[in-house]
């Protein structure tokens, strides 16, 4: 199934309004595009599928944690493309490959191919969550993994509702940036 800009943008807008089903559909479709994109780009520098999967997940986390920077009146794919490319260049720079191998791209590059064959990434969610401060980890556990509503999570944990929301948001931002650092450390070992 080939996604189009209009479809994805519709899903994103709904997602920004809090529509979880639309948002899940969006991330699922984008993940296929991102996977194909990273496999293609990493193959040029002789890297494998696990690394592509790592980057796909990293990009998804970044998209999620920074979704407030998307302007709904603008097309979605150039925004996604810019994030995907930024994460790729950051990754190549950290692993000391030349980022000169990344050609100029248009937003269509990302939509051109998709790849639904997901594999395990090198990230361990439990271990990642354990690196977070207690408050953030608890909030993410309750709302995102146990699936409690914000109100229920607030009741259960004794935090206020806005505390929960802020902790989830900050937690994802911290996760998104810690995966980049973690990978760096692992590869230097």
């Amino acid at each position: 199934m080939v996604s189009t800009e209009a479809e994805l943008r519709g899903l994103m807008r709904a997602g920004l309004r809090g529509d979880a089903a639309a948002y899940r559909a969006l991330l699922t479709r984008l993940s296929a595009n991102l996977r194909a994109y990273y496999k293609r780009r990493l193959a040029r520098v002789g890297r494998g599928a696990t690394e592509a999967e790592d980057l796909t997940q990293e990009a998804l986390m970044a998209i999620h944690a920074r979704r407030h920077t998307y302007d709904p009146s603008a097309p979605l794919m150039p925004w996604v493309q810019a994030i995907a490319r930024y994460k790729l260049i950051d990754h190549l720079r950290q692993t000391r490959a030349s980022s000169l191998d990344v050609p100029i791209e248009s937003a269509d590059d990302l939509l051109a191919q998709d790849d639904h064959v997901g594999i395990e990434s090198a990230y361990d969610l439990k271990r990642l969550l354990n690196t977070l401060p207690d408050k953030m980890r608890n909030a993410i556990q309750l709302v995102k993994l146990d699936g409690l509503s914000v109100a229920e999570a607030a009741n259960r944990s004794g935090m206020t509702e806005s505390d929960i929301k802020i902790s989830v948001h900050r937690g994802f931002k911290a996760l998104a940036s810690s995966v980049a650092r973690k990978r760096h450390v692992n590869e230097n070992r």
Binding site: G15, Q57, M61, H64, L125, K144
Partner: peptide
Amino acid sequence: MKTDELIEMLSTNV
């Protein structure tokens, strides 16, 4: 971690 698990987590209670 599988990407589907990550997506599931990210899109729960958005």
